[in-house]
Design a protein around this nucleic acid. Structure first.
Lengths: 192, 192
DNA sequence: CCATAAGCTGAGTCTGATTCCGTTTGTGTA
DNA sequence: TACACAAACGGAATCAGACTCAGCTTATGG
């Protein structure tokens, strides 16, 4: 199923053009650019866009897949170089910075964290897993509580991505991650 | 501008019918019920709906205004009867329960917390203020850190409302509020 | 150079929200 | 009680945007 047949040259070109037109539009801040506009600025018709991407959302997901991949691969390195809770701290800051890439990215992260949209299911799972690694390591080291799963933490982080477009959101986001982190370091479980 | 003229009797009746039809629909779990359906089940035409509510969102806001009001009036009582951090804990649980009222409510809370939509600006401010009271009281009592504003906490809570429709979301939501609470009790600021 | 499958186009469909205007109906007044 | 008329109402029409599809175009393997 993977490489069914290596896309005709012009098709590949159009696909790339669409992807980069979409990326451009999203980074420019307009997260709800119309499909028509994306198609037009890629120099193709909507039909072509839909030939390559199931839906508008699928296109968005593709645009940010790389971003998400980067994020998900980070924990391994961080754990190599830092104590688990410090690694987690850095990961969360990384997350904030990624959200900073543009409104589009934060929108996507939001979708990943917040919704149950199957489109982002894959990304969501990988993110939850990444966080799970960090938490598990921290728990093994005795510095992080063990009753919180990666998935739960992911949900908890959902709020920080909504900060986009708010004055001083970046500091606020950092403060929130700090808050959560302190909560995670609070070993004694509140109650059985 | 307030009481421009006390609405004609039939108008008032229709308005109420619309509101309760909408509330019913939302509580039933379908947060994106179509305006047509709401109008129909209230026994009026869409035109009438729009005569009473600027937009679909405005209707939703109105439906939940009462809910939000209840929530916002709670801190005063809670502070009367409990220590500040306990009051905060209870308030957060209250929030979770309200989110439980129905998917609709959690959707609205989400909009309140997450977006900058002017429609919910009023509700957002009141919620932030409510949280601010609790935090300030806790800080005065020396049990809660003082570097987090109500608005920031509101943002941080944004994630819990996205849990709707997730298996076991309620426990997860409680866990997250617990996490934040523990973070808030962590007096020593992480770093200057 | 050809056959043909892969691609492309863009007008048209569909789903929903929102508008607009002709008709109906409460209600204050004579 | 009857009238006048602003307030309300109904609902077809309009708009907005995502998505589809029938017919045309063009790489590309032979």
């Amino acid at each position: 199923m993977p490489a069914s047949r290596p896309l005709r040259a012009d098709a590949r070109r159009n696909r790339d053009a669409l992807l980069s037109a979409a990326r451009q539009a999203f980074l420019d801040g307009d997260a709800d650019t119309h499909v028509e506009d994306i198609a037009r600025s890629a120099g193709v018709a909507v039909g072509t866009l839909y030939r390559h991407f199931e839906t508008r959302e699928a296109l968005i997901e593709e645009v940010y897949r790389k971003e998400v991949d980067d994020l998900c691969s980070a924990p391994a390195d961080l754990l190599d170089q830092h104590a688990p809770d410090e690694a987690l701290r850095r990961f969360l800051l990384l997350l904030v910075d990624h959200a900073a890439v543009g409104k589009g990215m934060s929108l996507v992260l939001e979708s990943i964290m917040a919704t149950d949209s199957p489109v982002f299911g894959d990304a969501r799972n990988r993110m939850a897993e990444a966080l799970g690694h960090l938490l598990a390591a921290g728990n093994a080291a005795g510095t992080l509580r063990g009753d919180v799963t990666g998935s739960t933490l992911l949900r908890a982080l959902g709020g920080i991505c909504n900060l986009r477009a708010t004055e001083g959101w970046r500091d606020e986001a950092r403060q929130i991650t700090g808050l959560l982190l302190d909560g995670l370091r609070h070993i004694t479980p509140p109650r059985a």
